[in-house]
Simulated assay, not measured.
Amino acid sequence: MPFRLRDLIPEIGHISLQERTRSGIGALIGILVTGLVSRAAVGDGSALPILIAPMGASSVLLFAVPASPLAQPWSILGGNLVAGLVGVTAVLLIPNVYVAAAVAAGVAIALMASLKCLHPPSGAVALTAVLGGSAIHDLGYGFVLWPVLANSILLLATALVFNNLTGRTYPHRPTRAAPDRGTADPTPAARLGLSASDLAAALKDYGQVLDVSPADLAAIFRRAQVHAYRPGRGPATCAEIMSKDVIGIGPDAPMKEALELMRGHHVKMLPVTDEGARVLGVVTQTDLLDKTTWGARGPRLGLRQRIRVSLRGLRAPHGVVADIMTRAVKAVRPETSIAEVVLRMTEAGLHHLPVVDGDGRLAGVVSQTDLVVALLAQATEDPPSPAPA
């Protein structure tokens, strides 16, 4: 294939203006905080380096691509520590500066890869230990503690605060898998498409380091399946299939009332709402079974759950719905596609999802039964694909 100039430009997915702005502001704040705190710690007249250049490269990863495996806390701390130790050792053992620099970079990369703390800017840390001049060499192994470890901790702490305050989850956690049912069956999401073993085998055959975790790669593949889905004439959104006449319950209602409502209406989940119909959580059959102790008068709060509620510091346990409800609600909107709902349910192992409007008020509930009926209707209404010639 002939060489093309555009081959020099990497193919990177679309980066929104908001994301570009957030990354730039994050790096600005991270380097500023690291520099100012470091200067305050050592003082202006100190001979110790205040800020080392590799932190600029680290800020690119921590604030621009915080989901990367190369940007996680162990990557920056472990990678920079390993590289600093290797660089100082190379200076002490190898007289030729260029040979020492080459050995430091090569050995540091090999060790980081082995310890699963690969961090590209750490290569610059190793070279800084070798090429930093007498000010760095005089520090000896103290260089690893200051400025390498100190700068790394300050930059990492800033990234932890900034990323989480601006809507990112850092350290990055892949999509939570559906709970283990304790059986030999794979999860529903794993029964279709690529399995975890298929993906692991493909990555092993590929044989190169990818800047994305296998779990994220699997999640991206599932998302691609959702976007490839093209609804036909059947229902397309939650608003078209959800139950609108929903039975809810207040957070201060007794647990026995929740049980009676479930039994009376033959449902397995009740949205928990405040007086303004805003969803505060959900209470399910599983909550009633796992978080309570059963007696002749019905469910009551068990000792273990009482301790959990008390340690959360919310309030003293009273044996009401608020003490056992699930607060981390994975709600959807009326305009959410049914394909997206299928993905969320299978990933988290859920059977029901509350539907909320723009103000967080309860609009309905979509269940697995609703999805089965909708998808069956769509399958029977869509015209069959023409047979191949």
Rank of each mutant, 00 (worst) to 15 (best):
R4Q: 09
E11M: 05
E11H: 15
L17Y: 14
G24T: 13
S38W: 06
A40F: 04
A47R: 15
I52Q: 05
P54T: 11
L62D: 02
P73A: 11
I76L: 08
L81F: 12
N96K: 00
V99D: 01
A100K: 00
A105K: 02
G106E: 04
G106V: 05
I109F: 14
I136Y: 07
L139P: 00
P147E: 14
S152L: 09
A157H: 07
T158P: 04
A159F: 07
A159T: 09
L160T: 11
V161M: 11
L165T: 09
T166Q: 15
Y170Q: 10
H172L: 14
D185S: 03
L194R: 00
S195Y: 00
A196L: 05
A200K: 05
A202Y: 06
Y206C: 07
Q208C: 13
V209E: 03
A224N: 06
G234L: 04
S243L: 06
D245I: 11
D245W: 00
D245K: 01
I249D: 01
L259P: 15
H265N: 12
P271T: 07
T286D: 08
D287V: 09
L288V: 07
A296Y: 10
P299K: 05
R308K: 15
P317W: 04
T326Y: 03
R327M: 02
A331K: 02
R333T: 01
T336V: 03
E340K: 04
L343F: 10
P354G: 13
S367L: 07
D370R: 02
V372S: 04
V373L: 04
D382G: 02
S385E: 13
P388D: 12
A389V: 01
